[in-house]
Computed example of a mutant assay.
Amino acid sequence: MGDGKDCLPAVAMVVVQVGYAGLNVVSKLAMNTGMNPFVMVAYRQVVATIFLTPLAYFYEGKTWTRVTSAIIFQIFLSSIFGATLNQLLYFLGLKYSTPTVACALSNTLPAITFIMAVPFRMETVGIRTKSGVAKVLGTVVCVGGSMLMTFYKGNLVRLPPSGIHWKYAEEVEGSGASAAAADEEKMALGAALVVLSCVAWAVWFIIQTKMSRTFASPYTSSALMCFMASFQCLAVGAAVERKISGWKVGFDIRLVASVYTGVVGSGLAFVLMSWCIQRRGPLFVSMFSPLLLVIVAVLGWAILDEKLYVGSVVGSALIVGGLYLVLWGKGQELSDQKKSTSSTVNIGGGKSNVMDEEQGQHGAIGLTPYSP
């Protein structure tokens, strides 16, 4: 029984990555039918708010009295960077690129977060230590891989057909194939937009790290964030998509994408990741991020007949390698901090444990990779 329970966090994170892989594929199909990404993101926020509010009330209803004007302002900033800008930029990038490219570039988030956290003294470089060298080197490798994927295409990697293509996906992909071929130069734009979405998400991490020290109620803050982002995204969507027909959804892939991204992308995945973070810490959650790239690449090849190029393959490998360097460096740094704290505080062991726990939570939270 003990071994089975120990495996549950790992199983939960695999489920999260599979869910996010489906999100990328379903969203790409919906946009290929002509669905505006601004409309999709607006619907996602509305669905996520409806899904998260009962959870916040059930698990954290007693903490609602602690919501102050300062916390509301922080959540408002979180909604702008963590939901509105991040998701709009990501789905625009996904529209102009491919699910594999978008997922690979999203793995640059730990490196971008590390760069942005250093000036705020949330992270230290420590270039004279192994952990510091690993973080800096991993950051450079991640950025190099993202630049390679953005600006270099290379030869086509020839793979045999899977033979299990989703018929509906073939029809949808076929309808947008000529436009995609004519706009190959937009691939670089799509890649750049995904990287910018990671920058917005990194800003969210910095805001969230500060807010979590005074208001540690993730369900409530997420529900409020999605609620505020709903109005922001609806306003932006209304300005971009002014035709009523652009907002219509039927019993089709657009409805599936709207519900799926809200429930799975912003609801179920968040609950599972929060549960895993409480039991194993954010670094454990971070280690499963590259799995998303593998799953999406396989699904893209099998279902969407997605083409892979040398630049994407090599760039993805560099990003994954750099990611693990950054995460290894961060893990080594936290281990050294715990050893230092344990050796310094010999009296009052309970207090020392609390200090170690806080260092593990706040020190590594900024390096949890992005989940779109």
Rank of each mutant, 00 (worst) to 15 (best):
A216H: 14
W166T: 08
P110R: 03
V345W: 13
V26P: 02
R213P: 04
V320G: 06
F215C: 10
G331K: 07
K339D: 13
L268N: 06
S222L: 11
A177N: 06
G350W: 12
Q232S: 13
Y43M: 13
V101C: 12
I112P: 01
D6C: 13
W166Q: 10
G132W: 06
L23N: 05
P290Q: 03
V141W: 05
A30K: 00
Y370R: 11
C7W: 15
T139E: 03
A83C: 14
Y370T: 07
V285F: 06
L92W: 07
T341R: 14
D183C: 13
N107P: 09
V67Q: 10
Y324T: 08
A216T: 06
G246S: 02
T129M: 01
S175L: 13
G349Q: 15
A297Y: 01
M122E: 15
G262T: 02
I71W: 06
A191F: 02
L105I: 09
V240N: 09
M149L: 14
A191M: 01
V199W: 00
K130M: 15
W201Q: 00
L291N: 04
A191Q: 02
G176K: 03
Q45R: 04
R280F: 09
I164S: 11
Q359P: 03
I277H: 04
M1D: 13
V25R: 02
Q45G: 04
T63G: 10
K243I: 04
V310A: 11
Y43Q: 01
G265S: 02
A177Y: 14
A235F: 10
K307F: 12
I115V: 15
A229I: 02
G262D: 05
G315I: 05
Q337S: 12
V320Y: 02
L224M: 15
N86P: 01
L77D: 00
E357H: 14
S371C: 12
K351C: 14
A180Y: 07
V25D: 00
S212F: 07
T100P: 07
D252Y: 03
S162K: 04
G163R: 09
V310Y: 09
K186F: 12
L325H: 07
T49I: 07
M225L: 14
L92P: 00
G176L: 11
L304G: 02
N107T: 04
Y168V: 11
G237K: 04
A216N: 13
M273H: 05
F81D: 01
P37D: 03
W204I: 00
A239M: 14
L323M: 13
P161C: 06
G311A: 09
P161H: 07
D3Q: 14
A239D: 09
K330F: 09
Q232C: 12
P290R: 06
V140L: 15
L52Q: 03
Q332F: 10
L327M: 12
V263D: 04
P160Y: 07
D3E: 14
C103S: 15
R279M: 08
N24A: 10
P161K: 10
V259M: 13
